[in-house]
Design a binder for these strands. Structure first.
Lengths: 341, 341
DNA sequence: CGTTAGCACTCTCCACCATCGAGTGCTAAC
DNA sequence: GTTAGCACTCGATGGTGGAGAGTGCTAACG
């Protein structure tokens, strides 16, 4: 019974056409006749795991069927050793900098699974300020460059609307104050340490103003749901026969372009801490009901967390996808670990 | 004759169906009968400006027809004042930092022209080093942060494979040397200024090694064809009826994903210095023959140059697209100018 | 009672065909 | 040069009729 469901799904995943009872007994050594299979298929359909496009067609899995199947995969197919080596090799070739990794992860996932690869950079929960520098552009404005301990770099312009231009020595003094007070702080701790600056001293006052700007930038960074979702291999998804009618395709793309839902999903994956599968119309709010996602977090829990995964048609090879995503997220874990070591 | 061509194109642009002689006389006050129009249409077809999908269908413009039409647009329709104001307002709302502008430009172009908006950040021809800082991550590695005068920020890790760990004072000394020698330099000038560093002094030797890394990063930045092409509103293009068959769509997307051709185009536009239109199969090498591009450079000639524009079906409103792209690129010019002022 | 062979039934797919109509090209007259 | 008239072409539409795949049901079997 479960093995029949499994057979139906695996057959449908490869052929993309409704699968009949005969095809099953022929291609999978089930040891029973097609009539028996038919009665089991009818039962599976009654349980809501399979459907009928029409009376005289074979069965196709429902989203619930896929869900059942995915839950039953206790050990996902691990990625073949050859491919593991290849991927490691590729990661070895890019520069050792976290900003390159997540893109490569998406590209790799896309090419291995033949679906679309998704990845976000590792984003800290509460970023720590490592250091900040300012470069005066002119007397009225300063360009702030903020380095976060988690590796991100932020830039902001601050207008110094003082009555008279500020000279470079004063700016240096401001910078010194800020570095002394803000280094290593999170946004909220930085805020409290700025409070004690005096209002009657011109330099301290300026430092406070600039410092508040710094805090604001860091807060915004903390609050941003996802910095960026990088995707590669969307073409693979477009090529699937179920997207031959372009309206389905459109739905998926509009959901991708409006990244709100993706962000929410990714947030929940990052929170859950393990690989997760979202199938078809389980993706409720937006128009993603024609696709499934396999997502896994990577990074350091409590520090920086990103997400990698694949997006494919509901009819995708979940076991392969899970195996591949698991490997890539593991690899990313290693890399991030190295960075912090 | 030219007015008939113009009428055919404008009608086809709005209806997306082949246009016949009767429809033309009805909807455009041409003052002649359909038979006359037919003979003119036949002539235009002989000149290669129009085609026939089949015998009993109306005419549709060829790429050459569009080209002729575009050349004849001496004064593009300027963007309505209301929309100009709206756009200015939107640009006023984002932070005053060049990295936000090009994304907004793409988004704006997409929503106004109902096609896809494209934009690249302004990229300098020969970047100048403004300043660089290093933050030691541990004793064996330093994280380089490189600020270019043109506003870009680059990051790189350098492994300091010295025999013994390097202490912070030495690192500071290295940084001081580098800032003194490299500030304001282009990559090639920086290279020559590094040559005079002595090999027998440990700090100078280290400075040379790190400095060479800096030069390499800047060179890579100079050499990179395009940093990034940001696109928005690809959905608009997907919705055009000519992309109902998804294979055409696929061609366009594969051309976009493989950004080589786009980069080449953008390079040529940046070089040409004015708005350019690429129609259908004029986009020779790659599979972009189903779409047209209207691209314009922005920035400061000789300093930083970026490109903004739209990508739409060949059947797009060129006059509106040209007007809009012209306005947006002009606006970007103003903004960049402000930044340098 | 589970399994199986047999069989009628259902429904899609495809090829074929006739019809319709938009739009053309041509010709002859103005 | 322009126009009316007309035959012609060819895609689009819709209906028909097998062919084939696959089902569900029933009755028989171990």
């Amino acid at each position: 019974m479960q093995s029949i469901l499994r057979a139906v799904i695996e057959e449908y995943v490869t052929t993309a056409t409704p699968v009949g009872s005969q095809a099953l007994v022929e291609r999978y050594g089930l040891g029973v006749s097609s009539a028996t299979v038919r009665s089991i298929l009818a039962e599976l359909e009654a349980n809501g795991l399979l459907t009928h496009p029409h009376t005289s067609a074979g069965r196709i899995p429902t989203d619930a069927g896929y869900r059942f199947y995915v839950e039953s995969i206790t050990e996902a197919i691990p990625l073949p050793a050859v491919e593991q080596l290849m991927i490691r090799h590729q990661f070895g070739q890019v520069e050792f900098a976290s900003e390159h990794w997540f893109r490569l992860a998406a590209t790799t996932l896309a090419s291995v699974t033949r679906a679309a690869g998704l990845a976000t950079p590792a984003k800290p929960r509460d970023a720590h300020i490592r250091r900040n520098d300012r470069v005066a552009i002119n007397e009225r404005m300063a360009s702030l460059i903020l380095v976060l301990r988690e590796g991100a770099i932020k830039q902001a312009l601050v207008t110094l609307d003082a009555d008279e231009p500020i000279d470079q020595p004063s700016l240096n003094a401001v910078a010194a104050i800020l570095n002394e007070r803000l280094a290593g702080m999170t946004a909220s701790r930085a805020q409290t340490r700025l409070a004690s600056l005096r209002d009657d001293d011109r330099v301290e006052q300026l430092a406070r103003r600039v410092g508040e700007r710094v805090v604001k930038v860091v807060r915004e960074y903390d609050a941003a749901a996802i910095e960026e979702v990088f995707s590669d291999g969307l073409l693979n998804v477009m090529e699937a026969p179920e997207f031959a009618q372009s309206d389905k395709l459109r739905r998926v793309f509009s959901a991708l372009e409006n990244r709100a839902y993706l962000g929410q999903l990714i947030g929940s994956v990052a929170g859950a801490g393990q690989i997760q599968v979202f199938i078809g119309h389980e993706n409720q709010p937006f128009d993603m009901r024609d696709v499934s996602l396999v997502l896994a977090p990577y990074g350091r829990p409590g520090h920086a967390i990103g997400v990698v995964g694949v997006l494919g048609p509901t009819r995708m090879s979940y076991s392969q996808a899970i195996g591949t995503v698991r490997f890539v997220s593991g690899l990313m874990n290693e890399l991030v670990e190295h960075l912090y070591a």
